[in-house]
């Protein structure tokens, strides 16, 4: 068999260049810049400042408020991932079973995904508004004085609900397509072997969905950690006050609002390491249990 070969040994590198350039300019260079500035306290206008070593890091890591944000972010991410994955799967299984009007159900469940995150945040703000929010009124009816922006836990609930709601359709689309790609021969064989539908789901269908679930879990974690920024910003109405905020929002707040470039860079580097560790852990621990074929 004849091997396809390049005439020049530099050709492969030349073809790789555009991609490498993009990675270099948009990922590696900013990351290196973040690491560099995390060791300085800089004047934002001139970029001149004092080298402070690890002071920015020790400052962040000993700050009880940073720890509070970190705890919230962890709890928030776990809740958003499990709630949106769970409900996405539930709706997908239900829609998969519906025979008549399936298209309508699907469209209805999917269209939330067409909403841009800031708009979702805005809708969330209105639903939970202290003065006109229907959800606030509903909570009042059961004796819950829900006040976002005032009570820490109320705000946490509202941010979590809106963020999870936004992600359900995304998971729904992927789960539905995964469900539909399960061969009917497998389902029929399972139906002959076992009468219980629930049991069939957990022993046959769910393991077949595992690769998809794993993929979605990584994407949902990234979503909850980073992409909920717009939602958080809108829900706290630009004034975090005593409200819970995610770590990414804190990076933005300190760096872009407060012009503390060094402190913000140190927080970014910590997040970078966190994501790295998380991704490695997910691949090492969970992927072992996932079977792709």
């Amino acid at each position: 068999m004849k091997k396809a070969q390049f005439n020049s040994r530099w050709m492969p590198y030349a073809l790789l260049m555009p991609q490498m350039a993009i990675i270099g300019i948009f990922f590696l260079w900013p990351a290196a810049e973040a690491i560099r500035s995390s060791f300085y306290l800089e004047d934002p206008f001139f970029g001149t400042g004092t080298f402070v070593g690890f002071e920015n890091y020790s400052n962040v890591l000993t700050d009880p408020n940073y720890r509070r944000s970190a705890v919230f972010t962890a709890a928030f991410t776990l809740t958003v991932v499990f709630v949106s994955l769970g409900l996405g799967l539930l709706f997908a299984v239900s829609a998969d079973r519906v025979l008549r009007g399936q298209q309508t159900y699907k469209t209805l469940l999917m269209w939330v995904y067409a909403i841009a995150p800031p708009v979702a945040g805005l809708i969330g703000v209105m639903l939970f508004d202290q003065h006109i929010g229907p959800l606030t009124d509903a909570a009042a009816a059961i004796g819950w004085n829900l006040q976002i922006g005032v009570d820490y836990w109320d705000t946490a609930v509202a941010i979590t609900v809106v963020s999870a709601w936004k992600q359900i359709p995304y998971n729904f689309i992927f789960f539905l397509s995964a469900l539909q790609s399960i061969p009917s021969s497998v389902k029929e064989a399972a139906a002959i072997d076992c009468r219980s539908e629930t049991r069939r789901f957990w022993t046959v269908t769910f393991p077949l969905l595992a690769p998809m679930t794993f993929f979605l879990m990584i994407l949902n974690t990234t979503y909850a950690l980073f992409e909920t920024f717009g939602t958080v910003d809108l829900m706290v109405q630009d004034q975090p006050g005593n409200s819970p905020v995610t770590l990414v929002y804190k990076v933005y707040r300190d760096g872009f609002r407060g012009n503390d470039l060094g402190g913000s860079a140190a927080q970014s580097v910590i997040l970078m390491v966190l994501v790295l560790v998380l991704t490695i852990a997910q691949f090492r621990l969970i992927e072992r249990r996932v079977h792709y074929s």
Partner: peptide, 16 residues
């Protein structure tokens, strides 16, 4: 009455 740190949330009840 305390309606949080946001400006508008505290002004609205006066306007209402």
């Amino acid at each position: 009455g305390f309606y949080g740190a946001a400006w508008g949330a505290n002004q609205t009840p006066f306007e209402n």
